[in-house]
């Protein structure tokens, strides 16, 4: 018995390791420059901790020269309603949902240990103590660095959200097909 019998595995590893180079070749622009890989963060959750993580990654990616987009859908879109807008929607159900979970970047709840707002308050206090930027500050930085915000048209319709309910600087509403095209063209996806 020689080491020869393990060669198929080594070959398989070599095959896999060869893939990134092939991808890099495929994405090289005609002039020989590498096309920077884009990032699409699909913001599905409106929970405080997940919105926070999305904005940390988005602002850092934009700061590092990565073209970055945030697709805001379902509860993720609620975080990008203006802070001062209290109730959104037209029907009683849409209004009731907004009442049950207040929209806006400064009104996020923790998915765990919310305790009627005690959790977020403690998180906010600790963030201040340790110099951690709050979601609102990160959002402002992300937008200043050119992060594109893409609201989901379907979510806007379902929750009865108007363009005027949204924060300023929001892009045009789009659908899933726009996101899929970006991913098909090589953008890195993050689903948060």
């Amino acid at each position: 018995m020689t080491k020869q019998s393990f060669d198929p595995i080594a070959e398989a590893i070599a095959d896999v390791e060869g893939v990134p180079e092939a991808f890099a070749e495929a994405f090289r622009a005609p002039d020989g420059d590498r096309k920077p890989r884009e990032l699409v963060i699909i913001c599905y959750s409106g929970d405080l901790e997940k919105t926070w993580a999305s904005l940390i990654l988005a602002s850092t990616a934009a700061a590092s020269g990565t073209p970055t987009r945030m697709f805001l859908t379902f509860w993720g879109l609620q975080a990008f309603v203006k802070d001062e807008v209290r109730i959104t929607g037209q029907s009683w159900m849409q209004k009731m949902l907004a009442f049950m979970q207040r929209p806006g970047i400064s009104h996020r709840k923790l998915s765990k240990m919310n305790f009627m707002g005690m959790g977020p308050w403690m998180m906010g206090t600790l963030a201040k103590q340790y110099g951690v930027a709050k979601p609102k500050e990160l959002l402002e930085a992300a937008m200043a660095l050119g992060v594109e915000l893409m609201p989901c048209q379907m979510t806007m319709d379902m929750f009865g959200l108007k363009r005027s309910d949204m924060i300023d600087g929001m892009g045009e509403p789009v659908g899933a097909a726009t996101v899929i095209e970006l991913l098909a063209n090589g953008a890195a996806p993050l689903f948060i």
Partner: peptide
């Protein structure tokens, strides 16, 4: 000084631009 991740990078990127 006193700022946590990612603000040192974010602030620097904004200053460099």
């Amino acid at each position: 000084r006193g700022l946590s991740c990612p603000m040192p990078i974010v602030r620097t990127a904004q200053a460099v631009r």
